[in-house]
């Protein structure tokens, strides 16, 4: 499974749940693999990785400035406890894409993130334009 498979699987599920979804969205000198607006108006950023989860944690620190909720998407596999703890401490969610294309939330993302209003508005506009 490569990164694009992970992106496709998560995008499909989000769309089926009524999210407005865009991929490869420019945000703070980075490109968010998936940016989405849920039916309640929350902005989500999901970084999809086959490896290098630490890099995703780093990228999502920046995306947290503009998103209400941030997650890492990866394929299902055993993950070290220390890595899980790093993700949890950072307030990031972890989504596994299962071999059948369904998704499972391994770690719940923090829901009390406080994005910066101007950056959130900008990201929201970009998702609306692209979705």
């Amino acid at each position: 499974m490569d990164e694009s498979n992970i992106v496709d699987a998560i995008v499909n599920v989000l769309r089926s749940r009524g999210y407005r979804v865009a991929t490869e969205v420019a945000n703070f000198n980075r490109s968010a693999d998936i940016a989405a607006i849920d039916p309640d108006g929350n902005i989500w950023v999901i970084e999809c990785k086959v490896s290098n989860i630490k890099k995703a944690v780093e990228q999502l620190r920046t995306h947290k400035l503009s998103a209400d909720r941030v997650c890492i998407g990866t394929f299902y596999r055993n993950t070290k406890k220390t890595t899980l703890e790093t993700i949890r401490k950072a307030g990031i969610g972890l989504i596994y894409v299962m071999p059948d294309g369904t998704i499972v939330k391994k770690i719940e993302e923090r829901s009390d993130n406080d994005p910066w209003r101007p950056a959130k508005n900008r990201l929201q506009r970009r998702v609306m334009d692209m979705a």
Binding site: F28, N29, R30, R61, T62, L65, W116, A119
Partner: peptide
């Protein structure tokens, strides 16, 4: 600093 890092 990268703008995002400064903002953080």
């Amino acid at each position: 600093l990268r703008y995002g890092d400064a903002l953080e």
